[in-house]
């Protein structure tokens, strides 16, 4: 591989990292607070992308197109959590049972979208803007905007988690829900808030994904989920900064692998990183800190 292609793929990787980072921040927040590995997260990304697509198709304007994705993501995630996930959690479902429930939920969403969309791949028109050369990398205005969105999301999430009392309560809850409850922290309200924020981030990640790839189908989010989970686990559950740094690693690795072996292998890069993390650093990521058995849905 020539150095030009390598540098180009790193540039693409930075943009991919922005998409992965937004998803991974939502995923890691959800995993950190609820301790639930939610495999329907990728499908909520797809719903966010389709919501924006519909808003664009109906010519509702740019603001509505942008808002539609996080709004749909938050709404769907909240409803799923309060109905399906809560139902199985009440039946004393353990972490594995709930994992299966989220997997099944994701598949139901995917096939429902497939049925409604007649297996079509949809085009999304978004002006990519002029091309900019920054050092050895080539970016478009649009791809740089996506990196900016990811940076803004990180700043906002850090501000909420570290500067507000609600954010501190969420961090406390992710460390020790029992103690947080004994402190009088309203669990249900905090967990609902987590579903809403993380769902909105899933929807936003879906929009950013479709803005970058300009096409979307029913399996788009699910394909991207591998990279999101790899970044969230590499970065450590509940750590937005870790998720962003890990997203950069995963994003660049997936694009470099795709440049070398073809786009088919970009998912393999995510899976490879995930496997390496689990094998080499078993005490890191979701397994770090005090052990938590309780899934708080």
């Amino acid at each position: 591989m020539s150095s030009t292609i390598l540098l180009q793929s790193i540039g693409f990787g930075i943009t991919t990292a922005a998409v992965v980072a937004i998803g991974a921040m939502g995923f890691t927040l959800q995993l950190g607070v609820t301790n639930l590995l939610n495999l329907s997260f990728g499908n909520v990304m797809t719903i966010g992308a389709f919501a924006s697509l519909i808003a664009e198709h109906w010519h509702l304007g740019l603001a509505a197109t942008i808002i539609a994705a996080p709004l749909a993501g938050a709404l769907v995630t909240f409803v799923l959590a309060r109905t399906l996930f809560a139902l199985f959690a009440r039946r004393q479902g353990g972490a594995f049972d709930l994992l299966m429930v989220t997997l099944a939920t994701g598949l139901i969403i995917q096939y429902t979208i497939d049925a409604l969309a007649h297996l079509q791949v949809f085009q999304f028109s978004f002006p990519s803007g002029s091309t900019l050369n920054i050092g050895p990398f080539v970016f478009t205005v649009l791809s740089l905007s996506l990196v900016g969105v990811a940076a803004l999301v990180l700043a906002a999430l850090l501000a909420v988690l570290h500067l507000t009392r609600i954010g501190k309560a969420l961090r406390a809850l992710s460390v020790d829900p029992k103690l947080a409850r004994a402190c009088g922290v309203p669990m249900r309200r905090m967990i609902n808030l987590t579903w809403i924020i993380s769902g909105a981030l899933a929807g936003l990640a879906g929009l950013v994904y479709v803005t970058n790839s300009l096409t979307v189908d029913a399996s788009a989010g699910l394909d991207f989920l591998v990279l999101v989970i790899a970044a969230a686990i590499l970065g450590g559950a509940g750590s937005p900064v870790g998720a962003v740094v890990a997203a950069l690693v995963v994003g660049i690795a997936s694009e470099v692998v795709a440049a070398v072996g073809g786009s088919y292998y970009s998912q393999a890069a995510g899976l490879g990183i995930l496997a390496l993390v689990l094998v080499l650093r078993p005490a890191s990521g979701v397994w770090s800190g005090p052990s938590r058995d309780e899934v708080t849905v």
Partner: peptide, 13 residues
């Protein structure tokens, strides 16, 4: 206590 939170954040919670 919440080990990953600072002293003042523990008090705030």
């Amino acid at each position: 206590v919440f080990p990953t939170l600072s002293v003042i954040d523990n008090l705030e919670v």
